[in-house]
Design a protein around this nucleic acid. Structure first.
Length: 413
RNA sequence: GCAAGGGUGGUCGAGCGGUUAAUGGCAUCGGGCUGUAAACCCGACGGAGUAACAUCCUACAUAGGUUCAAAUCCUAUCCCUUGCA
């Protein structure tokens, strides 16, 4: 039995829409997963993510939760789901990205990575094995292997070296992962509880979801690296698939390389990834990036942009971006995006949001983050719909021409 | 009225004879943010002028003065704060 179930329901070109079933939620793909690094999607309550936006899966981060509040705290409170009250699916990143983003604070070796905690400078050691242990304690539905993410413009030699280690780390991750699953260290399995069975009555034997075919365990995804070097991407793919995972991710994009490199890699690698497993593009991206990646056959995404940009005054809208700080919005009574169905756009004007932002009110960050997430999730909903009806090409054209229109007008006025 | 301390660019506030429109904070304006060390970071911020420089103006309450040189020293005037009457 598998820990997850993955089924394509419609295809158009390389783009596919499908259903990913985990032990906790049914996830329609392509899907955008909001990032909740420290056990919270910054500035946005779970109530909104569940009820209004209907997000089915969010991220958590091994490194951050390991440092604070610590594995023991989370384990003793029953895992990240119980601790945070997020009962739908979770994907935890392995800390691999922090090897890249905290590069000033770490020392790398074959065994693993020594970090100086960004909180207080304490020396911490993270390895594939430790990452797997932490992720078992967190109890996510999808666990990521511990990888090394080289810089976007890494040379062939650097990338090759890094990639070889990532492959070895992937094998070690899988070995440890299996051991932990066998010994029941995962905190997240809900499938024995009567309450869960009642809630999922419909899905238990459903044609698409069929929960009874699930093992109740965590799933593990491998990560393809290789920076901008196509031959290395290919090599990484082959070696990762050889080890064998429940899903496959493309890592190491949008980490400083040129945009054209990202698209080149996507175009080259995405469709070569196993057809019958979900394909996850890590850390990407802008709405237009998502649509392009779907076009190349990607199924899953996560990105901090909706929340980070939301906090820093930048809203994503169907015509491009709105920088709410701009003086030209001071008297605009229209919402961020008049086509957006979210509760922020239904109620609040650009003028009011700008006022809140300028006045340093935390609600500004919350409302714009909320809108951005709603916009991302709604965009993915439209993407899925259009693939289902064979209209994705049309959708993609319209989407892109709306953005181009904006380049002429600047900020959708 | 007397005494003491003050009046600096949108604002608060440094500077107290010698590059330079004059440190810094705030405000304002603009840009950035892609598996979150980010409610953050970067830039502009007297006026005119230039694609950008250059180059002109106008500036440290007001008016005089001393000096090669003044926001900085002197005199007068106006205003503010505090204390005493």
């Amino acid at each position: 039995m598998n820990p997850i179930n993955w089924k394509i329901t419609a295809q158009e070109g390389k783009a596919r829409t499908g259903v990913l079933q985990t032990r906790r939620s049914t996830i329609e793909t392509p899907v955008f997963m909001p990032v909740g690094t420290q056990g919270t999607v910054k500035g946005v309550r779970y109530e909104f993510l569940e009820d209004e936006m209907d997000a089915r899966i969010i991220l958590g981060n091994t490194y951050h939760l390991w440092l604070r509040p610590g594995v023991e705290v989370i384990r003793s409170l029953g895992g990240l789901h119980k601790f945070s009250t997020w009962n739908r699916s979770l994907l935890t990143d392995s800390g691999g990205f922090q090897v890249f983003s905290l590069s000033d604070l770490r020392k790398l070796s074959e065994e693993g990575v020594e970090f100086k905690s960004h909180l207080d400078g304490t020396k911490m050691f993270l390895s594939p094995e430790i990452s797997m242990e932490i992720q078992a304690a967190l109890g996510a539905e999808i666990v990521m292997v511990f990888d090394e993410c080289p810089k976007g413009d890494a040379t062939l030699e650097e990338t090759k070296k890094s990639l070889d280690m990532t492959v070895r780390w992937a094998q070690r991750s899988k070995d440890k992962f299996n051991e932990l699953q066998a010994s029941g260290m995962d905190t997240g399995n809900p499938m024995q509880s009567a309450k869960w069975k009642m809630q999922n009555e419909e899905n238990l034997k459903s044609e698409i979801c069929n929960l009874e075919s699930l093992s109740g365990k965590q799933s593990l995804f491998g990560i393809i690296q290789g920076a901008g070097h196509l031959n290395l991407r290919r090599e990484s793919l082959e070696k990762t698939v050889e080890i064998g995972f429940d899903g496959y991710a493309i890592g190491g994009l949008s980490v400083g390389e040129k945009k054209s490199v990202m698209y080149e890699v996507l175009d080259f690698i995405a469709h070569q990834m196993p057809e019958n497993a979900p394909r996850y593009l890590m850390g990407v991206g802008t709405p237009e990036d998502l649509v392009e990646a779907v076009f190349h056959g990607v199924d899953m995404f996560d990105c901090v942009m909706p929340t980070r940009n939301g906090r820093t005054g930048s809203a994503f809208v169907s015509t491009g971006r709105v920088n709410i700080r701009n003086a030209k919005f001071a008297k605009q009574s229209e919402p961020l995006d008049s086509e957006c169905p979210c509760s922020v756009c239904k109620r609040y004007s650009r003028a009011y949001l700008r006022h809140l932002y300028q006045a340093n009110e935390m609600l500004a960050a919350m409302l714009i983050s909320h809108h951005n997430l709603a916009f991302f999730l709604d965009t993915m909903r439209k993407v899925r719909q259009s693939i289902k009806f064979g209209e994705f090409a049309k959708f993609r054209n319209n989407f892109r021409s709306n953005l181009k229109e904006n380049e002429k007008n600047i900020d959708g006025e």
